[in-house]
């Protein structure tokens, strides 16, 4: 073994069920690495969303609870309050966290609950076949915006930074998984977010731009290029709250 050695941590217990080039599986491994390095797998209970994201349950050896779609903000609140010594973390989808669960997400943030949300933003609802989400970009074609999203017909898209930048929360960041450098930033942000919870600083949210080659109709390599050339340009990247 060299000091360059890299091996998937044991928490990744088996093959995942995601499509080729899926961003969820990249993120899950990053989270698995952080939980392993922080040595907190046994102190962590992950709250699942419902959507492609929830398939982490099949390949990660960590305790999980699965409330209804989008209700992670509420469930995490309860998790942390009944077991303050355990980490309350969610891997959410953008539809779950920002559409059906927006009330719960924002309410948990406004209360500054000491919990951590990782939101996978792939700009659509993937599991149901690629319909528009709040994060679908203007002009983007989806199964429910067949001619592209327009401001007139579908309204503006959602940016969590605009909603949360003035809240009294511990950590807010946006990263991606588009290339090795971004993956390192994501890992760093994941670690920092969980450390905020460890240090009782309050609410942390990391939005991760992830590809959905299947529903974007792009090859995995081109899907990563879309993130680099379009999404990372359109969105403000990096940490905007770090208390």
């Amino acid at each position: 073994m060299s000091n360059r050695s890299k091996k998937a941590p044991k928490i990744m217990k088996c093959e995942n069920k995601f499509c080729a080039g899926c961003g969820h599986s990249l993120f899950d491994r990053i989270l698995g690495e952080v939980l392993t390095e922080m040595n907190i797998i046994g102190e962590t209970i992950v709250c699942s969303d419902i959507g492609c994201n929830h398939m982490f349950q099949y390949s990660m050896a960590v305790d999980v609870i699965v409330p209804p779609h989008g209700k992670m903000g509420a469930a995490l609140t309860a998790q942390k309050r009944v077991r303050p010594d355990k980490y309350a973390i969610t891997i959410a989808g953008d539809g779950g966290a920002y559409a059906i669960g927006l009330a719960e997400t924002v309410a948990a943030a406004t209360r500054n609950e000491n919990v951590t949300m990782f939101v996978m933003n792939n700009t659509l609802y993937a599991m149901t076949g690629g319909q528009a989400a709040p994060t679908t970009q203007l002009g983007q074609i989806s199964a429910s915006t067949p001619k592209g999203r327009t401001e007139k017909d579908h309204g503006l898209d959602f940016d969590v930074f605009n909603v949360m930048r003035n809240l009294d929360i511990a950590y807010l960041a946006r990263t991606s998984v588009a290339n090795p450098s971004e993956i390192r930033k994501t890992k760093n942000a994941v670690k920092k977010a969980i450390e905020k919870q460890r240090d009782n600083k309050g609410f942390s949210l990391v939005e991760v731009l992830v590809p959905c080659p299947t529903n974007w109709g792009l090859k995995p390599v081109d899907a990563m290029k879309r993130i680099e050339n379009e999404l990372m340009v359109r969105y403000e990247m990096g940490e905007i709250i770090d208390k």
Partner: peptide, 10 residues
């Protein structure tokens, strides 16, 4: 809705 799901988690 939030309350019932908080109870689920707790």
């Amino acid at each position: 809705i939030a309350s019932v799901n908080m109870v689920f988690a707790a």
